[in-house]
Amino acid sequence: MTRKQRRMNFIILGLLTLGVAVALVLTALKDKIVFFYSPTDVATKKEIPTNQQVRVGGLVKQGTWKKPTNGLVHKFTVTDLRHDISISYKGIIPDIFREGQGVVVLGKLQADGNFQTDEVLAKHDEKYMPPEVAEALKKSGKWKHTEDAK
């Protein structure tokens, strides 16, 4: 086998691997990624899918967090200070969850406008603001620098 033939073998094998990878990635990008919406998006846009998982983020509105009295369902309102969206979450709320803090939730939008979530994203750091939330607040014109990360 000459050097040229060997190189050809490499190139063919490489292209083959790359082709498989590209095919896998393109298929996965079609239905395996999750879109983010701000409460304003949810309130103003019509085309948000209800059958697919999406993420919603904003600030947890002061005074709206209702802990479960008998059961496991937490209810709270997420706001970008222009629009609100009510969230219900069944499970154990992360330790760092607070009213007035930024939060991102993952779940499905219900037909009645409520958002049912399976996952409340907890942050290691309470000073941290999810970038999507920061941007949603900036868009709604309510961004305050006091919220800024250190």
Partner: peptide, 27 residues
């Protein structure tokens, strides 16, 4: 990908376990 898509105005997305399970694991 979320950075790239956002830079081109494609909206905010997150890429989680379903994506990696479907692409990385078969490789």
């Amino acid at each position: 990908y979320p950075l790239i898509l956002d830079a081109f105005g494609g909206g905010k997305v997150s890429v989680g376990p379903p994506f990696f399970n479907a692409t990385f694991v078969p490789l």
